[in-house]
Every structure is written in C-alpha cells, then in structure tokens.
Amino acid sequence: MTTEAPSVLRYGSLVPVEVHFDDLDALGLLHNARYPLMVERAWTAFWNERGFVFEGDWHAAGDMCNAVKELHISYQAPVNRTGDYAVHLWIERLGRTGLTYGFRFCSADGALTYARGTRVLVRLHPDTLRPEPWSERLRSSAQELVKP
C-alpha cells in the first residue's frame, strides 16, 4: 500500500464512497470491476455538488454529455471489507474537448491507496455525438481539481 499525507491534499478533492457487501467477490475482496464504478460515483457526486447534473436529456446535459475514451487502472492492494472509503480525484489535463483525470481509490482519510488510474473523457455534441468544446463554466469549476 502507498502511504500519502492524508491531512492536506496538495491538489484535487477527496470524495467519500462506501463499499457494500454485494461489491465484494466470492473471496471477500472488492471486485475489480467495482473500482471504476466507485470512481464514477465519486466523479458524479463531485460535479453534482457543483450544479452539473445529468437527468437523461442530452441537450440539457451540457458538459455532462460526454463519453469515456480511455480507462487505465492499477490495483495496488486488496480491499477486503465493507465500509467507508474515498476517491481522490484530480485533473491531469483539460483540453479543448477532452479531459484526463487521475484518481486514487483509498482509505477514507486518504492515507492508504488501493488502486490508482486515469480516465479520459470527451465532451460530445448531443446531436452529432462528435467532440465539442467544454464550457467556460466547467473550465472554471474544474480549476480546483487541476494538478499543479
């Protein structure tokens, strides 16, 4: 496990998540497919708190009309119990139409890292599903996540 200074994040945001019994596999470990799900829940919670909500209408979704282009994850230590954890989120790169963010699935205080990775999103036009630039509103809101 990687130990990081939990008291103050130097960048990004630590978002709480909860591991439930049905997230565990037959051996009692957090199933490998659940890590990206937990990261998605944290990412969604982060943006929802800032007023970016997707409710099924692609035209009204704005910046939330996006798709995953890439996902990379490295599992560093097993999670072997239910309970409170966290996802540390940050932005590695914010381009014109793409966004690369980093994440760590970690203990609730951020001290222990169980998995880490990156994910690339592309904002899409709701009619053509072609890349479209991120709004200034998202760019402004995203600044707190940008890794120095």
Rank of each mutant, 00 (worst) to 15 (best):
G62S: 04
L29V: 09
E18A: 08
T44P: 11
A45C: 15
T113I: 07
A42G: 04
L9D: 11
A42N: 03
V39T: 14
Y75Q: 01
V146E: 14
T113D: 14
L145P: 12
E4Q: 10
A86W: 07
P6R: 12
S74Y: 14
V17S: 11
L138F: 07
P6V: 05
G117S: 08
P6I: 11
H125T: 05
Y35F: 12
A77P: 12
H125V: 14
T118H: 10
V68W: 12
N80H: 06
W90R: 07
T97L: 01
R96M: 00
T118S: 05
S140D: 12
F105M: 05
P126M: 10
V68E: 14
A45Q: 14
W90E: 03
V15H: 05
N32C: 02
Y35A: 08
D25G: 01
L30F: 04
Y85E: 06
I73P: 09
H59Y: 02
N32A: 13
A111M: 13
Y35E: 02
I91N: 05
N32G: 06
D57I: 01
L29K: 12
E18S: 12
L27T: 06
H31K: 09
V79R: 10
M38I: 05
S140I: 12
V120M: 06
Y35T: 12
L37Y: 14
V8W: 13
E136R: 00
A60I: 04
A42I: 03
V8L: 13
W43S: 08
V8M: 10
L37F: 13
E18L: 10
F54N: 06
N66T: 03
L121S: 08
L71M: 01
W58E: 05
V17E: 12
H125K: 08
E70K: 14
S140V: 09
D84G: 13
I73T: 13
C106K: 07
A67P: 09
N66M: 05
L27W: 11
Q76T: 15
A5M: 11
E132R: 01
L24R: 02
R10K: 15
I91M: 03
V79P: 02
V68R: 11
L124N: 07
V39C: 15
T97W: 03
A26D: 04
R119W: 07
C106I: 02
W47E: 00
D127Y: 06
Y11C: 10
L145D: 10
T97P: 09
E40R: 15
L37S: 05
D109Y: 06
V53K: 09
R34Y: 03
Y85G: 15
L14V: 02
C106Q: 13
R10Y: 09
A77H: 09
S140G: 03
T97Q: 03
P6S: 06
F105S: 04
R104G: 00
P131Y: 05
T100V: 11
S141Y: 07
R139A: 09
A77Q: 05
L99C: 04
D57R: 09
H59L: 02
K147Q: 14
A108K: 11
R119M: 08
